[in-house]
Design a protein around this nucleic acid. Structure first.
Ligand SMILES: [Mn+2]
Ligand SMILES: [Mn+2]
Ligand SMILES: [Mn+2]
Ligand SMILES: [Mn+2]
Lengths: 217, 217
DNA sequence: ATAATTTATTAGGCATGCCTAATTTTTTAT
DNA sequence: ATAAAAAATTAGGCATGCCTAATAAATTAT
């Protein structure tokens, strides 16, 4: 079995590989895990020895099939537990990520499948991310950023790319959740911010970072 | 926050203190945790420094108020999770202990209370052990062993003192669970074994160890 | 009381997973 | 091409939590 730390690295590498933002370097992993590049280099050696990744200074880190399988299992558990925490225990959507970060490491062969069944085989987690199925298949994630929506057009919030407490509480305050209808009124060329209308409510100005953190469908 | 290992030690010391089998020594703790007395001595120092226990070669280890509080919180989570795993996820009663061993270490202030509420405030776990309440109060555990029941008398299984897979699967095979009515037919002086009738079924011979592992009420 | 046995403790070591500081390599700017 | 900056790596260290082997202390048996 893998350690918590190994699983956290695999999950981080997996997420970085989906971002498609190029080479997965020690620095990028360190940033994702909020630790030190030197620590990452240590761990990349261990993961390479265990055949969970390949690592090459030129090509960066890449999950092997074995590593991908493990990463997806961890992600599956993470997202299923998030659904449980929100729907069954009544936590707020800004609280669940940190707890799921711990629960994703509980080891038991049947756990994910039993939890999945108990929850009614949900397709998406509370942040709009697709939940990998028992066979490892994953629905393709939404990938249009709110930022890319042209003024005059409407869309619905499909997922949030940032699960920080700060961002989710801000969304809560604005009345924005998964499924909320947003209309882009205007884009400000100066700083990339935009004016949007939330549902049928009033218009507000949100930053470029905000526009990049919401995926719409 | 405390580490998994610290919590496991606190829980072990707590359980040993309830057994009332005298002084809690490094050897007894090592046996409970299946590790080495030398390791235990190391940890007793750390727990003493953190004011979670007091340790004295003469008096053995004793939980402080702070240590007791933590131990009870861990036991509370352990038993609530066991109820969850059995009742909501449908695991067998011999499978839940090991998973709860992991789940008991998930840290979140509201978790135990939310889980408790979700489960309908259960009083006992699936092995018949009382679940500590939010205020730390615990129903007194059953303490009459099946072994002490006189021939001719009947009783009901209230709890099992041994949660090993081997014992629980054996009980399963015999059709014995919490609440099962048992009648003591005969006690064999030779080896302490006894002949019991399970429910309205046939009579079987069970060992002394068996008689010591079942609590009745 | 002395010897044998058991228990507790210390000493030294190892794996994990992190760190800082120093060094090397690579990339970017001039 | 050279200098400056950034990224990767190495070296050395630290905390945790475990181990074995050696030693000390306490118990039990003779
Ligand atoms: Mn995690
Ligand atoms: Mn999520
Ligand atoms: Mn248990
Ligand atoms: Mn445990």
């Amino acid at each position: 079995m893998h350690t918590f730390s190994e699983e956290n690295y695999l999950r981080a590498i997996y997420r970085l590989s989906l971002d498609g933002s190029g080479k997965i370097s020690p620095t990028s992993i360190a940033e994702a895990l909020d630790n030190n590049p030197a620590s990452v280099v240590d761990m990349l050696k261990k993961l390479t020895d265990k055949k969970l990744i390949s690592y090459d200074k030129k090509k960066g880190a890449k999950l092997t099939d074995k590593g991908t399988k493990t990463a997806i299992e961890v992600v599956r558990k993470h997202r299923l537990w998030e659904v449980f925490l929100l729907e069954k225990l009544g936590y707020g959507w800004e609280e669940i990520h940190d707890i799921a970060e711990q629960l994703e490491h509980i080891h038991n062969d049947e756990l994910a499948d039993r939890l999945d069944k108990f929850l009614g085989f949900p397709d998406y987690d509370p942040h709009g991310d697709p939940i990998p199925k028992a066979n490892g298949k994953i629905a393709t994630a939404y990938k249009t950023m709110l930022l890319e929506v042209e003024p005059g057009n409407s869309c619905q919030v499909a997922a949030v790319k940032d699960t920080s407490v700060e961002f989710l509480q801000y969304l809560e305050k604005l009345g924005v959740g998964i499924g909320t209808r947003l209309k882009v009124i205007e884009k400000i060329a100066f700083d990339g911010s935009m004016v949007i209308q939330v549902g049928k409510g009033n218009s507000i100005n949100v930053s470029k970072k905000f526009g990049e953190s919401i995926l719409v469908g």
